[in-house]
């Protein structure tokens, strides 16, 4: 990538203006969310709406915690567990399989790789109904296993790691390790895994965010006993009676972990998105 090199054109004030406007549009819904989350319930119906935050976040979030039906705190904890477990597993298995596809020779490699790429097109919706029945048969209905185990590997992850491993790891390095007597797993563990770290980091971030945000399947299989945070949000917002200050306080709290991840790892995420784009 040629990020650092000189560009042809110089940005004009108009460019800055347009970009600032785009940034504001990007941020406004977040800002609106925090305004409502920190103000009294009544402001949601105020015309015109307020444009500055207030001091009632504590009250609002207190009501979220008191709301047994939505079980928000459980949702938050469950989402952390689910997202971490899925992320670690996806990164691990993707690195392993990606390495095998990129650097090991075995019969049927290309066909298997093609199969993996092909499965990226299969929508969740296609599997969801039998999956539901399967989970119930196994007694996994409304358990966290049901939202973790089926997602422990992704075709995207394998594909991404394979692409990265192909270019980032030289065959000589692997040959050298092999000649030195390393078994394949040892090679993976001590030579390949460290080299895959940057890609693993990006894959991990993307997987974490995807899992944190996933909705359709958790919404179908989980209930108010074992919600993820998104299911809690949906439960909070679809009641007979919607306390928007409460819902927005919860939404803000559910969004903050992601924003933190984003602020800390933003560069890597952006790099990952852009690099993935060029490879594809």
């Amino acid at each position: 990538m040629s990020t650092g090199s000189k560009r042809l054109w110089q940005a004009s004030p108009l460019t800055y203006g347009a970009l600032i406007l785009a940034s504001l549009l990007s941020l406004f819904p977040f800002y609106f969310m925090f305004i409502v989350a920190t103000r009294k319930l009544e402001v949601i119906n105020a015309v015109p709406p307020p444009f500055s935050p207030g001091g009632d976040f504590g009250d609002n979030f207190g009501r979220v915690l008191d709301n047994e039906h939505a079980a928000f705190l459980y949702g938050l904890i469950n989402s952390v567990i689910v997202s971490c477990a899925v992320t670690l597993s996806v990164v691990f298995f993707s690195a392993l399989a990606g390495f095998a596809f990129a650097k090991l020779r075995f019969k049927g490699r290309n066909i298997l790789l093609l199969a993996i790429v092909g499965t990226m097109m299969v929508p969740t919706q296609l599997a969801i109904i039998p999956l539901y029945g399967m989970m119930q048969d196994w007694g996994w209905g409304a358990t966290l296993q049901a939202v973790i185990v089926p997602f422990m590997v992704t075709a995207f992850g394998v594909f991404m790691m394979r692409q990265y491993a192909s270019s980032a790891i030289s065959d000589e390095l692997i040959e050298a390790a092999r000649v030195d007597g390393c078994g394949t797993f040892r090679i993976f563990w001590s030579v390949v895994a460290p080299a895959l770290r940057p890609a693993a980091g990006v894959l991990g971030l993307l997987t974490f965010m995807d899992t944190w945000n996933s909705f359709l399947w958790p919404y179908a299989i989980l209930d108010s006993d074992t919600p993820t945070v998104q299911v809690s949000l949906a439960l909070l917002s679809s009641a007979y009676y919607t306390d928007y200050a409460q819902v927005f306080a919860a939404t803000a709290v559910a969004t903050v972990p992601l924003l933190l991840v984003f602020v800390v790892f933003g560069r890597q995420i952006i790099g990952g998105i852009m690099e993935g784009a060029v490879k594809a």
């Binding site: 079980a71 459980y74 904890i77 469950n78 567990i81 971490c84 477990a85 670690l88 597993s89 691990f92 409304a142 358990t143 966290l144 296993q145 973790i148 185990v149 563990w189 895994a193 006993d225 074992t226």
Partner: peptide, 22 residues
């Protein structure tokens, strides 16, 4: 870290029921 992470994942999956309300 990698190994610890993998183990943490497996433990997390094994011990899930602990984190449900029911």
């Amino acid at each position: 870290t990698f190994a610890v992470a993998a183990i943490a994942a497996i433990t997390a999956i094994g011990g899930l029921t602990a984190c449900t309300k029911k």
